[in-house]
Design a binder for these strands. Structure first.
Length: 205
DNA sequence: GTAAAGTCGCGATTACATCA
DNA sequence: ATGATGTAATCGCGACTTTA
């Protein structure tokens, strides 16, 4: 805080006890208190009008912030002298600037994550439709197998085990998340490994 | 060694200027 | 005139350092 303003506040708090209660903390009052509202008359009395920094001042501050976000006191004093500001104002500016920078970074990060999430959703849709397509192909192939095997055994045997095998091995249809929690139950073997009962597949590859 | 005082940075909030 | 927005300033707090 500007020392002049502080002096004014101290004086006013002496003259008008109860107005600036935050200056003399109450005994045992550790919790955050509601801050007093400064009215225009008070601001006029103490000359505490808020003023915008000039473009040149902001430019120089921005340049310094670009070099280094933190502000050691030596640099702060030097900068304050250069800008014709109170060192406290320079510190406050850096404080607020760091907060703005942090907010901006957070927003950028959020946008990046959102974009990544959206493209993942698209990818998921693609994969799901691919799965549906492959399931259709599989079902067609099984129908064809059944047709061929019934052609081959036609008139020889009516209780061929092959007619029920594929049904017995088929996992129940569980919808979109069929594999969740069933990784062990429906183990998918690596390529070229021998699968009992799956010899037929070699006929088609 | 330690309690009190001082300093600094941060998050949250307020006050004020500016603009649509 | 008024609500939205941006930003300077304030407050309260914790962490750390300095001083007596």
């Amino acid at each position: 805080m500007n020392h002049k303003v502080e002096d004014h506040l101290a004086l006013i708090s002496q003259l008008y006890p109860g107005v600036y209660t935050q200056i003399v903390p109450q005994q045992g009052e550790s919790k955050r208190r509601r801050r007093r509202k400064k009215n225009k008359a008070e601001a006029d009395i103490i000359g505490a009008k808020k003023r915008k920094l000039s473009e040149e001042q902001v430019n120089l501050l921005e340049m310094n912030f670009g070099n280094e976000h933190k502000l050691e006191s030596e640099r702060k004093d030097k900068l304050a002298l250069e800008l014709g500001l109170d060192p406290r104002q320079v510190a406050v500016w850096f404080q607020n600037r760091r907060a703005r920078w942090k907010n901006k970074k957070l927003e950028e990060e959020y946008t990046k994550l959102k974009t990544a999430h959206e493209s993942m959703v698209v990818e998921k849709c693609k994969l799901e439709s691919e799965v549906l397509k492959l399931k259709g192909q599989l079902s067609e192939a099984e129908k064809e197998i059944q047709r061929l095997s019934s052609d081959r055994v036609d008139g020889v045997s009516t209780n061929s085990p092959s007619s029920s095998l594929s049904m017995a091995r088929d996992p129940p249809f569980l919808g979109e998340f069929a594999m969740e929690g069933y990784e062990d139950a429906f183990y998918i073997p690596p390529e070229n490994s021998y699968i009992p009962g799956m010899e037929w597949i070699n006929l088609y590859v």
